[in-house]
Simulated assay, not measured.
Amino acid sequence: MFEFKGGIQVYSSFFLEALQNINRPIKYDVFLKHDTHVSDKQAFDKNTNFHFSGTWPLKVRTATFVSQILSSGILQNPDLIISTHLNFTIAADYLKRLRGIPYWTIAHGIEAWNIQSPARQKALHNADKILCVSNYTRNRLIQEQHLDPKKLSLLPNTFDSNRFKISSKPSYLLERYKLQPEQPIILTVNRLVSQESYRGYDKILEVLPQIRQVIPNIHYIIAGKGDDRSRLEKSIAQHQLQDCVTLAGFVPDSELCDHYNLCDVFAMPSKLEGFGIVFLEALACGKPVLAGNQDGATDALYQGKLGALVNPDDTKEITKTLVKILQHTYPLPLMYQSEKLRKKVIEIYGFEQFKACLNQSIGDFLNFI
């Protein structure tokens, strides 16, 4: 749907699709900051109108985006405003004070933690409902911002189960990366952004020499692009890992499922992950997953019932756990039952569950007004 795809954009797309499945005549006005159009591959409800700010220069785009929201709110006086990013709760708060319009917002991850802006803090307190993607984010907001727990509800991430499916290792990727079908492969999918190195790929690089002592032909693929690549290349050279690490660069959507199916374990021992849609995508491909135990990834792996949770700062634990997973000795049988693993993650986090959860909240609101 959106031209620019990060975790929040993907979530917002699913959120809108779920809203449009509500069996009530509702008019939607959707405001997109960086987009210029929506994909013609997706059908939208005839009562949905899109407003784009992406054609404006960056230096005035935010102001244009906010002015569109404010002017439409004043003129149309909607029944409810929903902001899928906390930054724009400030505009919603202004409209509530001016016109009495209730608003909800969605809290994802790092943007919701350690909020210092008085305006954003006030907007959070004035929100009628805050939907949180994980218990971790919800608990941090309650603790840090002293919010009323009753106004914070859970609406975890979801994924496209029709897109991410189990298959054999793709031969074209084995050929591209010069790998053998039986070769054990660790995969991380993430933006390589210097400010986001908390995602954990550094830790995998750090423990790879120890893993190689046990599994000599191990190979690690990091998929993603960003300004952190040059630093990673230096780290790989420093650890003499050039022959067992591949920086795959940007992976198009059309190849993402194939990359999950290429690996034997998806690993991202992050420290500040709000949830992590990539975990769900890998699980839907029937792959064992390793994640950190100190952030929203604990929700994604269902408190360790869907995968391995480790201390992201404990290199010995990461090493030991990855070796166990790759040697099929990790004490979670579901991890090696790909079809059952896929079925379980769909049951817990599939779109039908996401839709039902959102519809319950929206239904309560519609019955109230």
Rank of each mutant, 00 (worst) to 15 (best):
I185N: 03
Y94P: 00
Y349N: 09
K287D: 06
P102K: 10
L16E: 06
L19D: 04
K287G: 01
A300H: 09
S71R: 15
T105A: 06
W56S: 08
S168K: 15
V345D: 04
F159K: 02
T158G: 02
L124N: 06
T158S: 06
Q210W: 12
L256C: 05
F365W: 14
Q210L: 12
A282V: 08
I110R: 13
L208C: 06
I22E: 07
F88V: 06
G276L: 07
M1D: 10
V323G: 02
I130V: 12
T48S: 04
G296K: 07
Y260W: 11
A127E: 08
L358A: 02
V251P: 08
A284V: 04
N135M: 08
D314S: 10
R140P: 00
Y201C: 03
I369C: 10
K225V: 11
V245S: 05
E144S: 01
L334P: 01
K203R: 15
A282W: 11
I74C: 03
L322F: 08
Y177S: 03
I218L: 13
D79A: 11
L124V: 03
A123F: 08
F365R: 05
F354A: 00
L32F: 11
L155D: 03
P312F: 04
N23E: 15
N311V: 00
K234N: 14
Q68C: 03
Q180G: 00
S197Y: 14
K287I: 07
K324G: 01
I101A: 02
L341K: 10
A43Q: 14
Q353R: 15
L232K: 11
F351R: 05
K355S: 12
P25N: 10
L75R: 14
V310C: 02
M1F: 12
S197H: 14
L98H: 11
K203V: 03
T105K: 03
N135S: 13
I106S: 01
N261T: 10
P25Q: 10
Y349D: 05
Y220T: 04
L187P: 03
H34L: 11
Q183E: 08
S361H: 15
W113Q: 06
H328A: 08
T55Q: 15
R229T: 14
N217R: 13
D314G: 01
Y94T: 12
I26M: 04
S270E: 08
K41I: 03
F368H: 15
L70I: 15
Q183V: 01
L326D: 09
G226R: 14
L141I: 04
L98N: 08
S270L: 05
P181W: 14
R61G: 02
F279N: 04
F4E: 15
I142F: 09
R61Y: 07
L187A: 06
K27F: 05
P25R: 10
S67I: 12
L98E: 13
H108W: 07
